[in-house]
Design a protein around this nucleic acid. Structure first.
Lengths: 338, 338
DNA sequence: AATATTAATGTAAACGTTTACACCTTTCAA
DNA sequence: TTGAAAGGTGTAAACGTTTACATTAATATT
């Protein structure tokens, strides 16, 4: 690969002049500019971003850590960060921390090694302490989808409790009174918060959420199917289910219909997340919109502001809490008279 | 951020020694190693990958260019490359070239500037010439999802024509004789090849593909719905549809069922790609498996071999052509007697 | 005890840029 | 005509590493 020195030598100028042309800095004659451009073209010269980053002491890469690209939810997250990167003429470094604390730690470390100043990280397994340590080291690190008090102004997160309540309110407003709930068996806060929010709002309205009608499963299609089967086998009656996520909700619908129930006429099904899938299901899935892409963009922007010292004094105590909103499609409806 | 010099100074050794410890090279005393490690820990030192890449003349980043992260198909592609990267202890730089030649060009250029030696690029808009030029400049650039003769051993692609034929054979084997086809209106080769392959195999079997029963639409849910509506409004009879991709196929099923047709009993629907979606549809979608993730991994490995001069002489004329295979689920079945 | 070997460490150049500073040439005002 | 300002260009240091080579210290061999 030709370097700036090659270009300089062949064009008969100094490297400084070439550098000026490349960055179209002022104070370079038209003649020199033309000659240098010509040589660069001929040689197929491409500046070395690494060398540049080294001397400038700042990189043009933005990093994102997610568990898994094939999950549409995380793909949206990455997509948001990518968009922010592109808008700021930066490049996206993506690292996956799939399973455990160790791989999350590694993903973050690798990104730091690559000199990403701006970092959007999704981490569920690392301890608060460790994340705080990372955050202290990198002022441009923003945590997404999780809240840690000590770095509250560097967290962009969704209020899952309120999400559960919103779900309950929606179903309540459709006159439902007998509820079921499908949650995730994963050991993270989200499922529990959603379920708790759901239950508390239902009880507040004077109804009950039967313990037997709360099932746990893997947060995917099959998990939804199995959980629904269990729900059905209790023999207890319910006319509305609040499901942990869209994939499970689609599994629930499938099992319900296979067992002769019409959705939403017999049973309403409400999902969570509003991923692509929900628009592809039949009936189209009613769900809670998790604005993950917007959140990712905001996270990136907060990080960006932090590294460029644009963070205003006033935002030191800001919190970036999002509340999911209902997207009513076809899988929920008013309770039918029986 | 502390540098190697800081570590050296505080540990009372030279930078060379620190470097040796970092890379656990031989010939460094246990005492020195311990001291250096301690200081690194205290300081929270992280090596600078940029500086390292600069002096080593090789980077640890792998680049991938795709149109759009939110499309599950491309997410799988990226996922494959990411996996290959991780396996080789490299980092993934992701760049999107959304729409036009210009943005594709830019995406590739930016990745080259970032010194990615290994590059997996998906490009439909750039001319053959331009891609060849990039490929000449970067020996580690591999093209995915497209074949260019001149750089045949650097292309990993799917035989769409054969895919169309395979689709036809599947439907034919299910005794269908009256076919419809939904294609994409995008100006790329793939839709045309698939349709042509489909048609040719049908004609070879002695049947016809009515021109009126070939519709074009946007390659998404809605496009599939609209195209199906048009198909239906011709009033002509057909018992099997071959659809350009899974999203459209799901749209087709939806419209069909809304119009009183049962899938697959009245009409079989066959998709293409085998993305996540196809497992979530009801009935579960029969489709052609496009092994995009495997292809991406192979592309990355070819690129990797090329930059490390591991490319064997014998593979100079290799071609990496994939053929999609039928995944029979529930949306296709033998033609029912009427 | 002297020497040869090996282990441990350090010095300094190199990687490809940017940019402060110095220098030379023009241009222009007084 | 002189001097100042502005325009154009070059020199060299710096960024954080790795590593060839040089040097010194420790150990083994005679």
């Amino acid at each position: 690969m030709p370097t700036i020195k090659d270009v300089a030598r062949i064009a008969g100028v100094s490297v400084a002049t070439v550098s000026r042309v490349v960055n179209n800095a002022p104070k370079v004659s038209e003649k020199a500019k033309a000659k240098v451009n010509k040589v660069m073209e001929d040689l197929g010269y491409t500046p070395n971003a690494n060398a540049r980053a080294l001397v400038m002491q700042k990189s043009t890469t933005m990093g994102v850590v997610i568990p898994d690209l094939t999950d549409p939810f995380f793909a949206s997250l990455a997509n948001g960060v990518e968009e922010a990167a592109r808008e700021n003429k930066m490049q996206l470094l993506l690292s996956t921390g799939m399973i455990d604390a160790e791989s999350e730690r590694k993903a973050i470390t690798l990104l730091i090694e690559q000199q990403c100043d701006v970092l959007v990280v999704h981490s569920k397994k690392l301890s608060d302490e460790e994340i705080i340590k990372f955050a202290q080291k990198k002022p441009g690190l923003v945590l997404i989808d999780r809240y840690i008090k000590e770095i509250g102004n560097r967290c962009v997160w969704l209020d899952n409790l309120e999400g559960g309540k919103t779900a309950a309110r929606h179903l309540l407003s459709l006159k439902h009174t007998e509820f079921a709930c499908i949650s995730s068996k994963y050991k993270i806060d989200d499922p529990e918060l959603r379920t708790n929010g759901f239950q508390s709002e239902i009880e507040k309205a004077g109804y009950l959420l039967d313990k037997d009608l709360v099932e746990y499963g893997d947060p995917n299609l099959q998990g939804g199917e199995i959980a629904t089967q269990k729900l059905l086998s209790t023999g207890k009656k319910f006319t509305a289910i609040f499901v942990y996520n869209d994939a499970m909700a689609i599994g629930a619908i499938s099992t319900l219909e296979n067992n002769g129930f019409n959705v939403p006429n017999d049973i309403s099904v409400l999902g969570f997340d509003d991923v692509l899938l929900s628009r592809y299901s039949r009936p189209k899935l009613s769900t809670l919109h998790y604005p993950i892409k917007d959140m990712a963009i905001q996270a990136a922007n907060i990080a960006l502001a932090a590294v460029s010292n644009k963070t205003e004094e006033s935002s030191k105590n800001n919190e970036y809490k999002y509340i999911p909103i209902i997207v009513k499609r076809e899988s929920t409806s008013t309770k039918k008279a029986t």
